[in-house]
Design a protein around this nucleic acid. Structure first.
Lengths: 141, 141
DNA sequence: CGTATCTGTAACAAGTACAGTTACTGCGTG
DNA sequence: CACGCAGTAACTGTACTTGTTACAGATACG
């Protein structure tokens, strides 16, 4: 199962909690506990979406380029995790009355289920996540 | 991506549209356009859930054992497709203020998103699917 | 009673997706 | 120019899913 959404939110939360600071992929990778290339791959997607700015070369790194309260988790999910959640079998028998229509019927079911999930993600912004992190941190002491 | 849910609904729709008839895995497989063993594997899960009855041996096969209007797509999904939709990276750095809390914060986000999806699937029953199939069939002529 | 037919299930192969890793190019600062 | 960083291609290992073969057990039928 893909962890891209999870890691992407982690990365964005890091960038949001260190605004206008350049973080290197190596530094981010040590927080996520993964390889720096994995981080750069994901940040490539976020950069193309316009949410992150990059500076190459010495003293380079990544920084957030949007207001965290204007970026929903739905957008993040859709940027890094493409396609459908629920697979539909491709080629049922068209000569069977069920087989010939099940694809279309399931398509609408799956679409509405996926939209419900995305709508729920759309209720939360990156700022909400950052805020929740600080609350949880305080609780720990 | 797993197509088990999709195929399971297809199979259940077949059984529901031929009530009190025994359908063989071979016959079902030809409608789904897959191998009979794949069908039997899925039907094993549905049998253990109590929704399908089996008769082995000659003249054997599968038949529905529940009222289609009492079986929601949510139940079917959960029977054949276990685990979470969205993965969470397992071991972020506990010494990082973000890394130490991101798992819990993401957990609640992912749980609510998944619940929203399941709730949407819970709005539809197998009977709804069968009804939609017959509507689509009529539209085709 | 034997045979044909069907389920149940194990075992294996093939395809696919993802994370991790190495290696390299190119950019930009000091 | 050298160092440190992003960007990206390529390869590996692992895990999951589907498809397939094989076979044991069950059951109706002649």
């Amino acid at each position: 199962m893909s962890q891209r959404f999870s890691v992407a939110v982690h990365i964005l939360a890091l960038l949001a909690s260190e605004p206008s600071k350049l973080l290197t992929s190596e530094w981010i990778a040590s927080s996520v506990n993964t390889n720096a290339v994995v981080v750069r791959r994901l940040l490539g997607l976020l950069r193309r979406a316009g949410w992150v700015k990059t500076r190459a070369g010495r003293e380079g790194g990544f920084e957030l380029a949007v207001d965290p309260s204007a970026l929903t988790l739905r957008e993040v999910y859709q940027a890094v995790e493409e396609g459908r959640i629920i697979g539909i079998h491709a080629a049922p028998n068209p000569r069977c009355p069920v087989g010939s229509c099940i694809g279309a019927a399931l398509g609408s079911v799956v679409a509405s289920a996926q939209e419900a999930m995305l709508a729920e993600l759309g209720k939360r912004s990156l700022a909400d996540v950052v805020k929740e992190l600080s609350v949880r941190r305080e609780r720990k002491g």
